[in-house]
Structure formats: structure tokens, C-alpha cells
Amino acid sequence: MWMIDLRGIIPAATVVGCILLIWTLAVIPMNAHLAADMAARGDVVVTPHSPQDRKAMTGVTIAVKNPVIIAMTYSLDRPRLPSPHQVAVEMHNTIFTVAPTSRRSLVHHAWVTLSATLLGFVIGTTLGVLLAVGIVYNRTMDKSVMPWAITSQTIPILALAPMIIVMLGAIGIQGLLPKSIISAYLSFFPVVVGMVKGLRSPDAMQLDLLRTYNANAPQGFWKLRLPASMPYLFTSLKIGISAALVGAIVGELPTGARAGFGARMLVGDQYGQPMVTWAALFGAAITAALLVGLISFIERRTLNRMGMGAA
């Protein structure tokens, strides 16, 4: 079961390799101007001599005319685009060389964001499942809730998030909960859509079968509709948890939060420390991947035990 499937790994590794290659190459033109400026200050002869003239040129041209600066583009303190190894070093330093409780630790910030994500995900999933049950069993809810659920997702979360934070702050709710509500707001939607489809997946024959047993509505729910919806639920949960993480990060941006991935991204931007921003970005991506992977694992275990793993 834990055998590594090479056929699955090779295409993925190829894509990652291509991205790393493009990234690495892009570092040169992106940082060429900064590197050239620095070289000029360090008494290296750079052509053209005037910074104004260089500004009018593309990064590629500068790099071609001044091969000496190419190496420098990879080691700037405040690059426009950090190179992969700089981001890796920053992540190594903030994850492994400081205590996880330290404010400098990326693990600390990850936990701040993660806790809001998980709470929001639980709220969103619960709300999503309850709404889906209501939509499937109640005609009025079917007609009224679904259009609003869809409309809710058309409002840019970036516009909504500050309002939620400020309004909740005004009534004294701060910290974890406002961020979780934004997470829940983003993650309930895929759960509603998936669960409505899943709860409606039993066909007419399966419903007729229960009628021949004179089964009541709760029995129909627990014995047929709910188990039939499990594959749909897990698909929704995977989308929902990554949406919840995005929600928590967005919730950290407008409030001047002092901790969390969102706060780190903001700090890196405002204080000209791109490595901090990039490390937080990668930290968020890795966290999302781990969360989705965890749900995939639970999905495989559950569906296998339910005899539906073969599908």
C-alpha cells in the first residue's frame, strides 16, 4: 500500500523540475537592475554606466552586457525575485533553527493560521452539511437557499473580510473567531454543492426499495442517502479545506494581524523582506498540500472500509 508508484511520481517531478528551472532562470532578468546598481556602487564597471539608461533596458539586455552581475542576482539581500535556494535557506532558518514557540518561527505562524483554518473548516463543513440536508428535504429551502449560497461566493472575499473583522471587533469578538468565520464562509460552499449532489445520488429504484420496506425518512437518510453521499463529501472536503486556509490568510491581511502566514506575507512586503513573504507563501502551500493529503488519506481509508475503494 505504501509502495511508491514511479509512474505517478515522474510526471509530477517533471513539472516541479520545469517550474524550478523557469524560476531559477527568471531570477537573472528580474534582479539584473538591482544587481547592476549594487555592482556600480562597488566600483565594478557596468555598461551602460548611468542608472537612468539601465532603467530603460530590459533585465535580459543588462545581464547579457554585464555577465559579471549574473552571480550577484542570486545573492541579493532584498531581491525583486528571490532564488529558490534563498527561499529554502529562509525556510530552513525559520523552521529548524528557532524554537517553534518563537515569534520568528514559521511553525508558530503556521499554527496560528492553521488553528483558524481548522475551526473555520469545521464550522463551514457543519453548516454546509446542514444546509445540504435542508435543501434536499425541504422544497422551500431548495428554492431559497441555493441562489443565496451561489451569490455569496460572487462577493470578493477581499472586500468582505475587512468588514467582517471590523464588525465583529466592534462587538468585542477578536482573535481566532473572525478569521475562522471568513474560512467558514469560503469552505461551506463546496460542501453544500457536493452534499446536495451526493444526498440526491440514490436513484429512483433505490428509493422505491425503501418504500417497499415502509422505511421512514430518518431511515432513508441514515441508511441510504448519507452513505451514498460519502464520495461526494470527501471531494468537497478537499476543496473546502484549501478554501478555508485561503480564508484564514485573507482574514489576517486587513487587520494588521501580528501572527500567521498572512501577517508574515504583509511584514515581508512592508519591510522589504521578500524572502519572508516567499517563505510564508511556501509554508501556506505546503500546509494546504498536507491538509488535502490528510483528507485524501482519510477518504481512502473510509471508502475502502465501506467497500467503495475500488471505484
Binding site: 433505490q206 422505491d208 426499495l209 417497499t212 451514498a228 460519502m230 465501506m306 467497500g307 467503495m308 471505484a311
Partner: peptide
């Protein structure tokens, strides 16, 4: 007892 065209067993 009613038997339908398809077995309609619950896969789970």
C-alpha cells in the same frame, strides 16, 4: 418483498 430489474445492492 420486491425484486427490481437491477440487483440494486448498496455498494457500501
Amino acid at each position: 418483498g420486491y425484486v427490481f430489474q437491477a440487483a440494486g445492492l448498496y455498494p457500501w
